[in-house]
Design a protein around this nucleic acid. Structure first.
Length: 579
RNA sequence: GCGCCCGUAGCUCAGCCGGAUAGAGCAUCGGCCUUCUAAGCCGAGGGUCGUAGGUUCGAGUCCUACCGGGCGCGCCA
């Protein structure tokens, strides 16, 4: 609908320019807005307001001239020039009524667009370090990323969902050590060292250790030679890791390390699956590193003059690409940094042929954005094709009480617990209700409550109500099969038209939410759509005695049901037929 | 100290590229179930859009300064 009007106005403007009645150098894209006030019609176009100055014309006069040469359109009932120079459009009732029939007739979901068909986008999200189970803070990134991926698909993109696994580096060693020490406890090995302060605590470490003990009995038990005293936690950890490596030997150390990684990733994968989030690809940093991608990308940077040596280290020319200072790629001790892997990873993404690459990151990484964007630019890649969506971490509350969280100490509420307690639907909806770069207070009590404060039920309830009416209608249908949809011209009451208008916005909302990477727009829309339905439902009886009217209202109800179900589906939320 | 994000109703938040009289949910108050699901509907009250300037036909939206809050600033991962 919007598109059609945009074309009308654009055509009128070029008519005026062709006639020499509008003297401007260029015309910005025509914008059509939904009106807030129904007295201003259904749509408004502020184009004349913007063009007036360049054309040195009074905005109202210009609006009137544009309106006068608008091509005829059967869906437009009236146009008017109003206010400072808006062109307002009122659509015919038929234009809205037809939408309900269209939605019901279509086999595929209505409101999808093919605008980006044939183009590929990668959405990388969650990518939490495999150091333990996902907690509720991670759930938001999962919910937002998954919804964003769905939205992009809905406007035609071919989407790949990827999880980047940080399975290389010291952190994996600390985890391996932690599990192995707990394993020594589990098999009651004598003379084992005290569990270090910097080690990972938490039940899942003990679980993995017990599993190790089940599979290998005491075969992996080793004594440690004396651990030299270390002045701090990190020093102690490094010493213990070195001892463990030596005692276990490379093969058994790798065996423990693999068991740890497999166990943790398996847990994460299960948790995400229960949350309704599935990835197309799990990309391993370790594999990236062992493929030689890091030295290769460093070579590219060197050749392009974007990397240089200083103080024995290799630096990336980040400041020249918008970062506040240059960044180390290879440390003086010869070890490449995490950042170097990341640069290699992003080059790899683009080499895989994506037209667009989107990273969904937690807000605690936002300081990292300039250097990665800078690296993408320095590699000569299309920086405009690379976006980082920042998802603010959620702070957790139990009513008025803030819940402290720390991964190493093992004190946190897991995503699994949350899903068990409130259900995946409520959690998914709750997470995407706020703009993702806005801080979110996640109140466990509220999310758990089955009350009307919890907005997911409001939308789902609309769906369940419709489903119930449709069941009723089927039962009473004489022929028994198939409902009689049609007669949409009978939908003329205010509540019916309001609902039709709400439905007509769906394609616009999907496009806007996808383009802005803002799933919350869809969540808000669904609430508004549900409101329009509930009002209609209370004002009128769907199963009317007037057969034609009944069929018209059933069409409207079914169309609404489909849009609600589809929209909830894009957010990863179910649409129950009964509640 | 520097950088990024934020400040809108009692609370939690929307506000589309600057557009017409700033919206929603919750909470509060008052109504609506012998008829399709009351997890619903209808109505009321509630605002100096942090503060002060600036840009212009027009500012919650853009710019500057200040106040207040969050996060980030390693040859860590």
């Amino acid at each position: 609908m919007k598109r059609g009007l945009e074309a009308l106005v654009a055509s009128a403007i070029s008519t005026l320019r062709a006639r020499g009645e509008l003297d401007v150098e260029s015309v910005p894209p025509v914008v059509i807005e939904r009106t807030r006030d129904p007295r201003h019609g259904d749509f408004a176009c502020p184009a004349a307001l913007g063009l007036a100055r360049a054309a040195r014309l009074n905005p109202r006069d210009l609006a009137a001239r544009i309106a006068a040469v608008l091509p005829p359109a059967s869906d437009v009932k009236a146009t008017a020039v109003a206010g400072p120079g808006f062109i307002n459009f009122t659509m015919t009732e038929g234009a809205f009524q037809r939408i309900a029939a269209e939605i019901v007739d279509l086999d595929a979901p209505w409101g999808r667009s093919r605008r980006f068909a044939g183009r590929r986008v990668q959405v990388e999200f969650v990518s939490v370090n495999p150091t333990g189970p996902l907690h509720v803070g991670h759930g938001r990134g999962a919910a937002c990323g998954a919804a964003l991926a769905n939205l992009l698909e809905a406007v035609g993109w071919e989407v790949e969902r990827e999880y980047y696994v940080n399975d290389a580096g010291r952190q994996m060693d600390i985890l391996t050590l932690s599990v192995w020490l707990r394993y020594l406890e589990a098999i009651d090995w004598p003379d084992r060292p005290e569990f270090p302060g910097g080690g990972y605590r938490g039940g899942y470490i003990r679980d993995l250790a017990r599993e190790l003990a089940r599979e290998h009995d005491a075969r992996l038990g080793r004594g440690l030679s004396a651990v030299p005293p270390a002045e701090d936690d990190d020093g102690l950890l490094d010493a213990l890791i070195a001892q463990a490596r030596a005692a276990l030997g490379e093969r058994d150390y790798a065996l423990v390390a693999d068991a740890v990684l497999t166990g943790l990733l398996g847990g994460i994968r299960d948790d995400l699956a229960r949350f309704g989030v599935v990835f197309d690809r799990w990309f391993s940093e370790r594999e990236l590193v062992s493929s030689g991608a890091v030295p290769r990308v460093l070579e590219v940077l060197r050749e392009r003059g974007e990397a240089y040596e200083r103080d024995g280290a290799l630096w990336f020319n980040a400041a020249a690409h918008g970062d506040e200072k240059d960044r180390v790629l290879v440390r003086a001790n010869g070890q490449s940094t995490y950042f170097a892997s990341d640069v290699a990873y992003h080059l790899d993404k683009f080499e895989r042929g994506f037209d667009r690459v989107i990273d969904v990151w937690g807000a605690d990484h936002h300081g990292y954005v300039p250097r990665v964007k800078g690296a993408v630019r320095a590699l000569g890649l299309d920086a405009d094709a690379f976006d980082v969506v920042i998802v603010q971490l959620a702070s957790l509350w139990r009513g008025k009480q803030r819940v402290p969280m720390s991964t190493r100490s093992g004190e946190f509420v897991t995503l699994r617990d949350l899903v068990d307690e409130v259900g995946a639907d409520a959690a998914r909806f709750f997470y995407v209700l706020r703009k993702s770069d806005q801080h979110l207070d996640f109140d466990l009590e509220l999310a758990k409550s089955q009350s009307n404060e919890n907005p997911v039920y409001y939308v789902q309830y609309a769906h369940a109500r419709i489903a119930s009416v449709l069941r009723r209608a089927r039962e009473s249908a004489v022929e028994g099969n198939g409902l009689d949809f049609g007669h949409v011209e009978r939908l003329t009451e205010r509540h019916e038209l309001d609902l039709l208008k709400a439905l007509s916005r769906y394609p616009e909302v999907i496009e806007s939410a996808a383009n802005a990477c803002e799933p919350h727009q869809l969540a808000h829309y669904l609430r508004e759509l549900a409101t329009a339905f509930h009002s209609f439902y209370n004002a009128h009886t769907i199963l009317s005695g007037d057969e034609d009217l009944k069929s018209a209202r059933l069409t409207l109800a079914e169309a609404t049901r489909r849009v609600v179900a589809d929209g909830l589906g894009l957010l990863g939320v179910g649409a129950p037929a009964a509640m």
